[in-house]
Write a protein that binds this DNA or RNA. Structure first.
Lengths: 367, 367
DNA sequence: TATCGATGATTAAACGATTAATCATGCGAT
DNA sequence: ATCGCATGATTAATCGTTTAATCATCGATA
């Protein structure tokens, strides 16, 4: 839409100078005397001049637009991510174009193509389940997990798992059921890895994959957690608040009080986590920071890139690829009920009890 | 990013014709012989020609980009909405630029300005709590509620409330607590209106506003639903699945089984609704349809608009401003427990029992 | 046969910004 | 006095597309 606003030449005419000078003054590129430059800036401001992105794009080959690709847009994390990326991008002068792929790989490819056709300067991709990103022909920032090759920046999911585990361990849990959705997800695997490695040999950790369960029992089937409690599990560490919610309601429904009889933890601090009863203990990503790093890396790559080439679009890299997660302790986790097997056995391997003391009380930031 | 792809002139040269002819052939506007046009289309296709949006935008004043403004981006409905709008827009040849306002009105204005500065051809706005949209200078589609002035298209929230109420009424509920968040929200008021009006005088309906409760008791405070059950309420109709979730977990935690001792219903069919225990009975919007109508109206307005004028941007209007909601019955609603006051009294005003038979069993589409 | 009209294609001028190349000017140094 | 150079500003080309105006050609009509 052609705005009404004044054009470059209008400012030029107003001041009796050439359009080129105005452009130079505003961009600080050419040679313009300080006073004139100032005068130009002032009149540009009071005339409410806004450059035409289209004109600039045509000339420079830069659209100042980034694409945001979220293969799994139904993901409840979407709001957080979109918000963070939009903030980072807009404060760097970029717009954000969304691309949806409805979870489907073919659709995703199409969506990415549409972004390319729209001449985005770069894209931020949050891949689903470790999908490899084909070369797209423009700078790409990948937000997945630090352990994924080609990852630009991500939360330290492993560390998040560690924090959750240390918290549960410190509370005294020794039989833990980890609930994940899909073993193909790098994010989930890292979180689980962090949990398992922290518990080590002094505890019993089992994994339940929801997707394989549902393949047999149907979508939304019960997870059978009451039985697990009967087996002696005292804590359910879920790789997402969505699963934590599912676990929590199923346990409650079965008359198993959380956290008295069993603890439940999640990941991501999704919208409902603070308001359910009991509020969920979870680990939160610093999305703002992640987005800032991703966008910064992207912008840098765009700046260094020759606008003419349609060169290879290898994922860009950033300094700090690993952003710590933050443990948020709420009411869904507590000490296990007085139980069958106690210290003696476990105290052996538990220097962890001390280190676990570091575990954040409500809202501490990790270094 | 300047793509590598061929330009118009390249195709022209390849065929020994002028660029204008190619443009005409591809757009079907000028006068080009059928054969030549076909030949041009073919070579354009095999050369993989993609027009430069920047060039076109500069010349036509149309960017083929729509802005999506969601004042409350944290809204868990966001994924649904964004997905639907993106789909509708992209199949109409438009890109979608997101604008975030972090719930803040000032920020929202800035975000809208940024969209304007980027020359969006139009915008879709989902206002929060009946915020009036100031004139933004480009066509605008407003998705709020049918009862809001200036609304372009929306779900029939009132009708959704009616369906929920008919469902509960048919089950035998006569004391219902409606749980809302904020009385300033048109959407919530319509939903509540539909519920109240359907129950009529034969039942007792009370409203609980979460926000005012939290203002006194603090964020995330208990809603005191156990007490309400003690007072004889048998159903809790929430205006959002988020609140339904809160109610459900609070009731469960208090040892009140859902749906045996109390029913809980929500709105919007959010991501967790099918997987919590018991799964939530809710009313779903047909976002795909709503988005399609909004975008269609927008595109029409854009087409009729003189690209030169920066005219007033009154909200566009659509034929079918009211899209029916769909009742989704799951496990969180059932007949109230055998109770103190029974038929005799209620049977008098209940032609509703019959009409309620229409209430959809699991997943029926409304006409 | 001269003319009119319809048809098919070309020319050229935009759109609004950027930028390399050019020009003018004044000053210091030779 | 002149050359050279640094400085400050202008000229003009360019990005890729659209579109109004123009031109050429041919058939038909008067």
């Amino acid at each position: 839409m052609a705005r009404s606003g004044p054009k470059l030449t209008r400012i030029a005419r107003t001041l009796g100078v050439s359009a080129a000078t105005v452009s130079n003054a505003l961009s600080g590129k050419g040679r313009v005397s300080a006073e004139l430059a100032e005068k130009i800036r002032v009149t540009a401001a009071e005339l409410g001049y806004v450059p035409s992105l289209a004109g600039r794009a045509l000339r420079t080959g830069r659209t100042a637009v980034l694409g945001l690709v979220l293969p799994d847009i139904a993901n409840p994390l979407f709001p957080q991510i979109a918000q963070a990326i939009e903030l980072a991008a807009s404060s760097a002068g970029y717009g954000v174009l969304i691309a949806d792929s409805r979870g489907d790989v073919a659709t995703q490819t199409k969506a990415i193509e549409r972004l390319i056709d729209r001449d985005v300067d770069g894209m931020v991709i949050v891949p689903r389940r470790g999908t490899r990103i084909a070369d797209v022909g423009c700078p790409v920032a990948v937000i997945d997990t630090p352990s994924t090759p080609g990852n630009t920046v991500a939360a330290d999911h492993w560390g998040g798992g560690r924090q959750i585990a240390e918290h549960l361990k410190a509370l005294g849990h020794r039989r833990v059921l980890v609930i994940g959705n899909n073993p193909a997800s790098n994010v989930q695997n890292d979180r689980i890895g962090g949990i398992r490695s922290t518990f080590g040999d002094g505890a019993f950790v089992e994994i339940l994959w929801i997707e394989s369960l549902e393949r047999e029992e149907g979508k939304g089937c019960p997870l059978g957690l009451a039985a697990k409690v009967a087996e002696g599990f005292t804590a359910f560490a879920c790789v997402s608040d969505l699963h934590a919610l599912r676990a929590l309601t199923e346990l409650q429904r079965a008359g198993i009080n959380v956290p008295e009889k069993a603890s439940v933890t999640g990941f991501d601090d999704l919208i409902w986590s603070p308001v359910v009863t009991p509020a969920l203990t979870t680990a939160r990503m610093d999305m703002t920071r992640i987005a800032a790093i991703a966008v910064e890396a992207l912008v840098k790559a765009i700046g260094e890139r020759d606008p003419a080439d349609a060169g290879i679009g290898a994922p860009v890299t950033a300094e700090n690829a690993e952003v710590p997660m933050q443990l948020v302790v709420r009411q869904s986790s507590a000490a296990p009920p007085a139980t069958q097997f106690q210290p003696a056995q476990t105290i052996a391997n538990a220097g962890a009890a001390a280190s676990a003391r570091n575990t954040a009380p409500e809202g501490e930031h990790q270094p």
